[in-house]
Design a protein around this nucleic acid. Structure first.
Lengths: 172, 172
DNA sequence: ACTTGTCATGTTATCTCATTTCCTGTATCC
DNA sequence: GGATACAGGAAATGAGATAACATGACAAGT
């Protein structure tokens, strides 16, 4: 994992997105954006859901459902799996988070609001995940779909490899 | 050997999977091809591995590891999870099968021998899976990887949607 | 023929991930 | 107030995956 496993502090150069972040403000901004979105859509941004999103943003990495459950329990919420799964399902359904199929884990959306067909780069060394955009329907896959009459509704695009930080470590 | 699935020949770009098959012969052909490949590569195409591949080919759909385990047990092999997982791992490692991350399930490779960066189309109604080719490293994802210094080693590309057969059913 | 190393298989136990089911509270609408 | 729809809590279980260890098959080296 990352060198600095201290949530909430000194994350300024956190390599996880492969870039630097002003973490504290990106959290509050994302939460506020989610809240606003829920308001306009008539969705309920309840305490568990808010807390789950905060946790994902704070960790800034892919979190398993049971890790999420631990955090939620610490925060005083229910401690049974469905509590975490329901909150995560809500976040994913509304574009505030994504599920990384390869890891069976969840991560806060890095581009909330943006039109979404996300792609992920997963470091097999440090497990860090970076989010990018993709348009898989416009490549060979799209051609195949059109040729067979398959209707694409959603895509999972996940690249596994080595992030720059781990590559550097290996060189040294 | 059959009309549609000739391993080793250049069917590589056919998005097969939502089409008719001469099943019996496509199974034996694929098994024979796998056997030949193992021979030349010095790999051991043991009874469990052969049976596992036959099962995948026969079912012609994505099979969970425990379903596979059930079939293997019926066929007189060991009945503990590692038996199935090891056989599946061998098949995947050698390109005879693929794992569908979205389903946590395994399917026989539709283009054995072809250079492999597979993409899948998964019907959310009937769970059928078709295999196509993809080159995700050449699109937006590849650009993002180069921009950040991420080295792509492997990609998972899975599209979820509705297959032509199920779409027809819905129309009717 | 015997030993050694390697790989495959079998088995137990355990771990992680995910869902079903049922019940309770609480907003909202009429 | 009563109906209804949704959210959350809790129990139990299902489903996916692996660690750890023992045994068996087989080829290579002596």
């Amino acid at each position: 994992m990352t060198s600095t496993a201290r949530p909430g502090k000194d994350v300024a150069t956190d390599p996880i997105g492969f870039e630097a972040h002003d973490h504290a403000s990106c959290i509050s901004a994302a939460v506020a954006a989610a809240e606003a979105h829920c308001q306009t859509e008539g969705l309920r941004f309840t305490p568990v859901r808010r807390k789950a999103l905060e946790i994902l943003l704070q960790e800034h990495r892919a979190l398993g459902a049971y890790e999420m459950l631990d955090r939620l329990r610490e925060a005083g919420f229910g401690s049974q799996p469905p509590v975490a799964y329901r909150a995560l399902e809500f976040l994913v359904a509304n574009g505030f988070a994504h599920k990384i199929e390869r890891l069976n884990a969840f991560i806060a959306c890095a581009h909330p609001g943006a039109s979404h067909s996300p792609a992920f780069m997963i470091c097999r060394r440090c497990q860090s995940v970076a989010e990018a955009q993709s348009s898989p329907a416009r490549g060979a896959l799209g051609d195949a779909a059109r040729a067979t009459g398959f209707t694409i509704e959603r895509t999972v695009v996940e690249a596994e490899g080595v992030c720059p930080a781990c590559a550097d470590k290996a060189d040294a």
